[in-house]
Amino acid sequence: MKPRLESQRLLALFAAGCLLLNYPLIALWNRDTLLWGLPLFPLALFALWGLLIAALACLMERQPD
């Protein structure tokens, strides 16, 4: 049942995305630190965003057989 597995994965990724981009996990990045000269908070948001896109691309581009 491959399609079912795919929808479960998508739902899991959605849940993970919602958790990662909201309180309280997002508060973990709320620090006054610089990383490579860039402020941590925006950097973390963009990085999480990029990770979500990569994971979604992996799931979506997998050839359904």
Binding site: S7, L10, C18, L21, P42, L52, I53, L56
Partner: peptide, 18 residues
């Protein structure tokens, strides 16, 4: 950073697009 949620929302919505 408050301009960001307007674009993070679509990201989450697109996870469920399929």
């Amino acid at each position: 950073v408050w301009f960001l949620p307007i674009y993070l929302g679509p990201m989450l919505a697109m996870v469920l697009a399929w």
